[in-house]
């Protein structure tokens, strides 16, 4: 997925008057923005290569350290130190942890009949309260499509878990950063609610 237009359209649907949605690959735009959404695109290697080529790694990291920041799907995965995808890819290393392939873990768990990618609507168990979960019921379903999942070293980073043969981290929260494995822009009302919460978030999270 990682369809930028879909993310932009969903944000336009929920922004407050005066807020403007801009799709950009320019460091200056990222620096000037009040909120940054980072969908990521393609496989891990392509995504990191694109970020490098556009000299975006530092600007994105700077945003993730300073302002309300929402990672989506690959935009969650590349925040980790390293991914198993494409025979191993070094990522942005904002958080210690590995991005792991689902297939061998499902096989090890005896869940060979489960299809890969994990595609469709699955429950997200919220680990605790967070401004981005406001108005979203515990265990609500969101739309997923992925074959890899994040495994952060710090278990307190997780803000949501989901189950597909194994339990995995489907949302993380840390200071001004929130990042999700699912696609809020394709998750109907609950997805729009999460985006609505994000564009109104001041980045505070105790």
């Amino acid at each position: 997925m990682g369809n930028l237009r879909s993310v932009a359209k969903a944000l336009e649907h929920v922004v407050e008057p005066g807020q403007q949605v801009l799709v950009t690959s320019k460091p200056a735009d990222i620096a000037a923005a009040s909120h940054v959404v980072f969908p990521g695109q393609g496989a891990a290697r392509d995504c990191m290569r694109e970020l490098d080529q556009h000299k975006l790694v530092e600007p994105v990291l700077a945003a993730a350290r300073s302002k309300p920041f929402l990672g989506i799907c690959m935009g969650l995965q590349v925040l980790m130190r390293h991914s198993e995808e494409n025979a191993g890819v070094d990522c942005m290393n904002l958080y210690p942890g590995e991005v792991r392939a689902l297939a061998p873990r499902l096989a090890a768990a005896g869940e060979m009949a489960l299809k890969i990618p994990h595609m469709g609507w699955n429950n997200v168990m919220q680990s605790g309260s967070h401004p981005l979960w406001n108005g979203i019921a515990q265990n609500s379903r969101f739309y997923f499509v992925h074959s890899f999942f994040v495994d952060p070293e710090d278990p307190l980073l997780a803000s949501g878990h989901s189950r597909y043969g194994i339990e995995f981290t489907s949302a993380i929260a840390c200071a001004n950063v929130f990042a999700v494995q699912f696609h809020p822009e394709k998750s109907a009302d609950d997805g729009l609610r999460l985006l609505h919460n994000f564009v109104r978030w001041n980045g505070q999270y105790a």
Binding site: G120, W121, N122, N123, M125, F144
Partner: peptide, 8 residues
């Protein structure tokens, strides 16, 4: 609780 079957 797990993945839902989809209706399209």
């Amino acid at each position: 609780m797990s993945l839902a079957k989809r209706i399209i």
